[in-house]
């Protein structure tokens, strides 16, 4: 509860330095640029939910997770499951930036023969821990990976990212129930609460009321954070590590399309690629960066 309050409070005595936070913000900005470039090049894809997840993915891949891009199959590595698989562009961008493959491959997104499938394929691309795309399944996968780690005496941690609309899937709650039942302290989930799904606001399509209360009722350690604040994201992960024998979820309040003014909070930008002109505008807003081409 203490951790909860601290995580919820902005600024203050963060677990990371200002320099570190700036570094993670820069990585998130880079990921956002890539998301725009990749979806524009592909002519399709999901910018909205990729942009809302960028800060969480950046914090995990550039600060939190023990991984080795040179040895993606390392048995003791931390695992990340992107349950909301349509945010693949953000994950691919992070993996490339982290050195799992050459960033020049990013523009092959969604092309025939590409390792960068429309939704992540763990058999094709090193660094992808689980195939996803059919919503609602990732938390079960993460549970299984966490159980395997415990049974095999591994100290790795498992992270999973879900969408708020995705939480309408019944399987999410089957898995929520079992993660707490199995006391999976090595598991931490993030829910990207951007308030939107395809057909409109989550509140209108099918309200979840409070996802936080639901997870709490199932016995989880629940935090509410600003999903665009690197400090709070890292703090949540630390809090999850301190919570022994109980899974932690960070209900992350986010803005869909974050970082690109004309995409923010716009339901239309869920699954539509920017035109070349729109992409240019978006990249200008996001600020300078190395271009992919």
């Amino acid at each position: 509860m203490n951790a909860e309050r601290r995580a919820a409070g902005r600024g203050g005595t963060g677990v990371i330095s200002d320099r570190r936070a700036e570094y993670l913000e820069e990585k998130a900005r880079l990921i956002r640029r890539r998301v725009i470039e990749m979806t524009a090049a592909a002519g399709s894809g999901h910018p909205g939910g990729s942009l809302s997840s960028a800060d969480i993915i950046a914090a995990l891949y550039f600060h939190v997770m023990r991984i080795d891009p040179g040895n993606p199959g390392w048995e003791d590595r931390d695992r990340f499951v992107l349950s909301k698989g349509h945010a693949a562009p953000a994950l691919y961008a992070a993996l490339a930036e982290r050195g799992f493959f050459d960033p020049s491959e990013l523009v092959t997104l969604r092309r025939t023969g590409s390792r960068l499938q429309g939704h992540p394929d763990c058999r094709k691309l090193p660094g992808i821990e689980a195939s996803a795309g059919s919503l609602g399944q990732g938390l079960s996968l993460a549970n299984g990976i966490a159980l395997a780690g415990r049974l095999r005496g591994k100290s790795y941690r498992v992270f999973v990212l879900l969408g708020d609309g995705e939480c309408q899937e019944g399987q999410v709650w089957e898995a929520a129930m079992s993660a707490a039942h199995w006391k999976l302290g090595n598991l931490a989930a993030f829910v990207d609460c951007n308030g939107l799904q395809i057909d409109g606001p989550v509140e209108e399509v099918m309200s979840l009321k409070s996802p936080a209360e639901k997870f709490r009722a199932f016995g989880w350690n629940v935090l509410e954070i600003d999903g665009h604040d690197a400090r709070q994201i890292v703090e949540a992960v630390e809090a999850a590590g301190r919570a022994k024998g109980v899974p932690t979820v960070a209900v992350a309040h986010t803005v869909k399309g974050r970082g690109v003014s004309f995409m923010e909070n716009q339901v239309d930008w869920h699954g539509k690629a920017p035109s070349p002109e729109q992409a240019e505008r978006a990249l200008r807003e996001l600020g300078e960066g190395r271009s992919l081409r």
């Binding site: 079960s140 996968l141 549970n143 299984g144 966490a146 395997a148 780690g149 399987q171 089957e174 079992s178």
Partner: peptide, 20 residues
């Protein structure tokens, strides 16, 4: 897993991903 067949398959998949 209790009466939750979808979670049954997903958890099994995760255990396989974890090397079991």
């Amino acid at each position: 897993v209790g009466i939750a067949e979808q979670n049954l398959m997903g958890t099994a998949a995760g255990l396989a991903l974890g090397g079991l």
